[in-house]
Amino acid sequence: MKIVVTIKQILDPAGFTVNRRRERVFVNREEYIINPADLNALEMAACAKDGRQGVEVIALGLGPARVDDALREAIARGADRAIHLSDPALADLKTDAAGAARLIAAAVQKIGGVRLVLCGAVALDSGAGELPGRLAEALGWPMLAQVHSIDQIGEGQVRVSRRTERVESDLPALLTVPHDANQPRHMLGVRVVQAYRQKSVAAWGLSDLGFTPNDLEPLTSVAGRRFPPERTPGTRLEGSIEEAVQSLVAQLRAKELI
């Protein structure tokens, strides 16, 4: 049984600082990491492999040459092999999630025999949570969102636990995994060495998937940046304790902090 895990490489937020007053993002260190929730998805796939025979975990990443590093790390963390979707034409195109979904769906079909696709529920950079749903649709598969554990994999169904309910879906299916679903395992040293020496990452371009750049014109594009208002340290909430707390709760809710 093949399980595909989508891997997104993002700019590490620890490497940049946002200056609200000057309305600029200063990239102090340009470093890249695997989207944290994707590591949880990879862990879920690795757990599904523990104790089962015949399970192959394939990491799939889309992006420029540096994504190769992320895919090697995915192998070190439990994937059996990896596929890198990369094409010079994509760099200029600035493909959106709609295009990415079609590319990834085509790659999954090309791999063949895939029963489960696991995606991190949300990417830390965009915070959009858009790709998994689009991908499920492009594949024509059911989607189970916010899965905390895979309980059982049968011939034609999969049973999972979400935060408050247990759900069953026909296979093949796409699962999204939140960042608090599990604790990703450490990289096994010998897997790190193997990831670069013995395991290879296959590279597929647009033509391998049957696309031309014209097929992938983006429906949305990022046109600029805006910045939140500057922080105001030292602001006091006035009034009685009860009033102050009401105001506090309202403000925290408006900022989606609670």
Partner: peptide, 19 residues
């Protein structure tokens, strides 16, 4: 540093910091 060694460093640092 070859990529393999960079990833090894990351793996060892993670182990040291977390375990």
């Amino acid at each position: 540093f070859p990529k393999e060694q960079q990833l090894l460093r990351k793996a060892f640092r993670e182990f040291a910091e977390q375990e």
